[in-house]
Design a binder for these strands. Sequence first.
DNA 1: GGCATAAGCGGACTGTAGTCCACTACTGCG
DNA 2: CGCAGTAGTGGACTACAGTCCGCTTATGCC
Lengths: 193, 193
Amino acid sequence: MRTPEVKERADAARNRNAVLAAAARLFSEKGVDGVSMDAVAAAAGVGKGTLFRRFTDRAGLAMALLDERERELQEKILRGPAPLGPDAEPRARLRAFAAAYLDYVRAHADLVRLSETGTPGARYRIGAYAFWHLHVKLLLAHREDAEADAHTLLAALAAEHVIAMTDRIGADRLAASLAGMIDGLYGASRSTS
Amino acid sequence: MRTPEVKERADAARNRNAVLAAAARLFSEKGVDGVSMDAVAAAAGVGKGTLFRRFTDRAGLAMALLDERERELQEKILRGPAPLGPDAEPRARLRAFAAAYLDYVRAHADLVRLSETGTPGARYRIGAYAFWHLHVKLLLAHREDAEADAHTLLAALAAEHVIAMTDRIGADRLAASLAGMIDGLYGASRSTS
DNA sequence: GGCATAAGCGGACTGTAGTCCACTACTGCG
DNA sequence: CGCAGTAGTGGACTACAGTCCGCTTATGCC
């Protein structure tokens, strides 16, 4: 988990791990949509109250499960080799990010969708989104409003969209379209710098 | 409703109108999220089964309510004056579409979100999406993969995204970012905002 | 007008997310 | 070591979306 603000009691930690393990197993066995929160609680041997206290809701549980994978990608971006890492040129790096993030979403499609679809606006409030957004924004520093453009680009990487597009045009065409869009952002800069 | 494939029985039509009227009233009184399907059924004086038989689910009810507004915009696009209508240049027309659609979403934010958020992928299956997509695709005919690019552009107009962005950067910056993105797709040096 | 038939109806029922709160048992302190 | 206090627990409970199926009634035909 991301930040235990205060030290966590031993029994609580044990239960949290039990829940994560049970959830991971059930989700992979029956699919994300085939598992109820009751089932997770029962399989983990805890009560429902405990489950919700720790993870807030279904989306929160999904986020916790994604946490590790997500951090791998963040690590590669911050310290890994080019083109993802800091040694690449911005445009190439942004293209690489889009491709890598697309892979990440596709690899965990249902979980990511679940994590983005809980309460309205959930996607935009989670720490991970802030990270991706900051990264893209910095790579778009030449734009007049890099912050807004970063959001716009990330919209096309929302799980809901990625899943639907994978279905109807395939991941390759989606990736190519994103790459083209990125090129457009470098080629048609409205900034004077 | 869009197309009664077969003639509809008189009592059915009466009930459908009662439901739409009741739903419109309740939604505007208490907000979309403050109204349950039971409440709509009760207010319309029909049973729950009837409500679901006609509208399938919550999202379907939202779509039915949006139907008329949506068609107004479609009409302006198909036959209205420039820049939205067919007499404008593609780029200007696409910019105008993005702005107009953005307004449409913002004007009915909760309903549109509801209509897009029902079952996973709902947004992409409804007829309206097909219409917008076709329109954008035709305006992007010069692109290598106009179909994919149209999807990518529309991703930034999903209700979820529009609502979140309105909150955090404001509609104007979102609109400007979309315009810039469109300019990028035309490969051009800038045109006036 | 009377009848057959299927479209339409409605409300009881099911499954699930999320809440609540009385109870339990760690943990730190004296 | 024993106690106080609070973090943690669990399962009964609520609210709601969506399903099911036996009953009702509009409609078209004779």
